[in-house]
């Protein structure tokens, strides 16, 4: 799909009244997180990288998001939302076991690392987890569908769309305080909102 907002970068508004100090502090900190600093180990990090790249691809015309780093830090800090289904352990343990299970699944199916699978095989494997059709024994204690629905999807998607590049790609106004919006009607936008360009 043609990027409708190729010329829009929400970060251009960082020093305008659309951003307050607190927002600048939070976003700056987020964008500075690095994968290596999280400390979940190289093997799991490789699995996580491949997983994130399949679930949440980078936008074509905007800077790549550091989604893997965000998620790796979340995992290490065990920063969950608190609630979890009775079938799953807490976030950190759940992810570490889940990453190992994905790796085991790749070994069981293809005899090689998940990080080394091509897109087609990786996606087929993930669709298996999504449907609860798995081969590795790791999934006995960690129900694949629950792991997928309560951890993989919400966590990756939340981290990915917390990054300004993804906001730019979708033409989202981004942070908006103290300045909000004036023009609320259909097909109207303020000068500080993204202008949409037609496909092609």
């Amino acid at each position: 799909m043609a990027d409708r907002y190729a010329h829009y970068d929400v970060l251009d508004k960082r020093d305008t009244p659309s951003w307050n100090d607190k927002t600048r502090q939070v976003i700056d900190a987020r964008m500075s997180l690095r994968e290596a600093d999280a400390g979940i180990g190289e093997a799991r990090l490789a699995t996580l990288r491949r997983l994130v790249s399949r679930i949440a691809p980078q936008p074509e015309r905007h800077a790549p998001a550091n989604t893997v780093a965000l998620l790796a830090h979340k995992i290490v800090k065990d920063e969950g939302e608190g609630f979890r289904p009775a079938t799953l352990p807490r976030l950190r343990e759940c992810w570490l076991r889940g990453l190992d299970a994905i790796e085991a699944e790749a070994q069981a199916r293809h005899g090689r690392a998940f990080a080394g699978l091509d897109a087609e095989r990786a996606d087929a494997l993930l669709r298996g987890i999504e449907a609860g059709e798995t081969q590795a024994s790791d999934w006995i204690a960690l129900p694949a569908r629950d792991f997928w629905n309560w951890r993989v999807i919400p966590d990756i998607v939340s981290m990915h769309w917390s990054h300004p590049s993804l906001w730019s790609a979708m033409g989202f106004g981004g942070p908006a305080s103290p300045r909000g919006y004036v023009r609320l009607d259909v097909n109207r936008r303020d000068p500080w909102e993204a202008e949409e360009h037609g496909d092609g």
């Binding site: 659309s18 951003w19 307050n20 100090d21 607190k22 927002t23 502090q25 939070v26 976003i27 987020r30 939302e81 939340s158 981290m159 917390s162 981004g174 942070p175 908006a176 305080s177």
Partner: peptide, 11 residues
């Protein structure tokens, strides 16, 4: 002063 315009942080 405490609230950012950000879904993740505001959780």
């Amino acid at each position: 002063e405490d609230f950012a315009s950000d879904e993740s942080h505001q959780s």
